[in-house]
Design a binder for these strands. Sequence first.
DNA 1: ACTTACCGTAGGTCATGACTTACGAAAATA
DNA 2: TATTTTCGTAAGTCATGACCTACGGTAAGT
Lengths: 102, 102
Amino acid sequence: MTYENMFSALGDSTRRQVFEAVADRPRAVGDLAADLPVSRPAVSQHLKVLSDAGLVVCRAEGTRRIYAARPEGLAELRTWLERYWSDALESFAAEVNKGRDA
Amino acid sequence: MTYENMFSALGDSTRRQVFEAVADRPRAVGDLAADLPVSRPAVSQHLKVLSDAGLVVCRAEGTRRIYAARPEGLAELRTWLERYWSDALESFAAEVNKGRDA
DNA sequence: ACTTACCGTAGGTCATGACTTACGAAAATA
DNA sequence: TATTTTCGTAAGTCATGACCTACGGTAAGT
């Protein structure tokens, strides 16, 4: 939901792998854990963090829970990025000029 | 440098404030600390993390160190974002169709 | 040379979080 | 109903990291 949650969620390597996997295609928890070096409960916890951050959504299919990436989540990240990217460009250009003076 | 470093760097609230401040305009360490609720050494440590992540650069001006945002850093983040955003769009569309079947 | 301003790093404390095993709940199956 | 499958959560361990104070080092001013 917040930038805080999103960035810190994607800041963990294992958790980013989980996200990238479900972004590739929706998967169940057990399937995700099978392709990762951590236990299934660990994957569950990572998915909860990603879900709280608004980066994934969940759908029940029998006893299985199918997780999928949530595009709106990345869209929010993109909003932040676009803003500070233009800021960074301007301030960096000014910095280069300052450097020329000195 | 790596996505790992970038996301985890921006995942901390205080550190993201530091980055946003220098993105607005280049600043010295003491000036940054004056506007933040943490000590100056803490700001120094955050700047080191941001620097290792390739998100900021530094320039000496007398005893002062002027830090500025590094646009190429955000550009890398954008590359990641664009890729997984399109992935997420496709997988999410497929997910919606699956949901319709069930 | 001495003092002042500004900064990075070392060392230590404390909270956060990533991971594990154990357990309980819900749905399909027989 | 009993069993199996799949999953989330609780409880505990251990490493990471965010923060502080103290210290040392460099550049400018007197």
